[in-house]
Design a protein around this nucleic acid. Structure first.
Lengths: 142, 142
DNA sequence: CAATTTACTTATCAAATGATAAGTAAGAGG
DNA sequence: CCTCTTACTTATCATTTGATAAGTAAATTG
């Protein structure tokens, strides 16, 4: 088992992960937002509260573009901007009620597709899957 | 360990996979092609020979757009179109010598970053990683 | 407190991508 | 043959995304 073989397996694996993720998430997002806007909302959902700079860095979107998309999301009432009272240059971004609802809906669609996918897995399978995920997360995808 | 918890772990895991993949592949592609063009070339590289219809379906790009991008790739001498002699409506798409070279270069960049990432892993770690990949590929990302 | 830096905004522009309508040419089926 | 279907192309247009220059307002620093 040399490292080159492992690399090839990794390529095939990540391809599969991307394909399945795409299957699970296909059309899960509301049609009223773009892909990038969805990515931003998803990031806010799991990391809130966040600042525009953090979004910019983690999502790899230049600040002016981040600012533009946040403005659009704000106009759609999906997020709330709160100015940091300690440093009035900074902002704290959170999902609005409406934004939470939209993301909850998307997540539950994805989750039910996932449950479908593993409906025939045995308890041992699920244990194995969980362990495998933890190993990879710790040793490879950190 | 209920399925909902497993779902949350999966979400966090796929996020990590996407992030690390992005790290490994960042700037690996030549600047002379777009992201979509790179995806198409990558697909051709691992699946050749393929038809435009297969590319369209697997990459989820509408036929007219697939046709446009293939034309651009052809004009850049990265792929070759061969008309199927049995059915002259069909085409067989392959990488050209130049296309092969470009993809080899991209892959070796990615591979060397991967080797960097696992340079400190022990032999047991690598074994574990390999097994975990196989389990997930078989039981979850099929 | 003047100069600089930080955090974010506004305005533009170009390129990439996606969607749709219409067209060509070859094969398939009656 | 004549029609229908398949595989792909061309043309066009709207939207999204990415890049860059310039601007504002608040904090920091010497």
């Amino acid at each position: 088992m040399d490292k080159n073989t492992l690399f090839n397996k990794l390529v095939s694996f990540t391809t599969s992960v991307h394909r399945v993720t795409k299957e699970l998430t296909k059309n899960a997002k509301s049609e009223s937002i773009s892909q990038v806007q969805y990515n931003i909302l998803e990031y806010i959902a799991v990391s809130q509260p966040v600042t525009p700079s953090e979004i910019s860095e983690c999502q790899d979107i230049a600040m002016p573009n981040t600012s533009r998309e946040l403005k659009k999301l704000s106009e759609k009432n999906l997020i709330e901007k709160i100015i940091d009272p300690n440093d009035r240059r900074k902002q704290t971004i959170c999902l609005s009620k409406e934004g939470e609802m939209m993301m909850d809906e998307a997540f539950s669609t994805i989750q039910s597709r996932f449950l479908d996918k593993i409906q025939n897995a045995s308890l041992e399978d699920l244990e194995e899957i969980e362990q495998a995920i933890e190993i990879l997360q710790k040793k490879l995808f950190y």
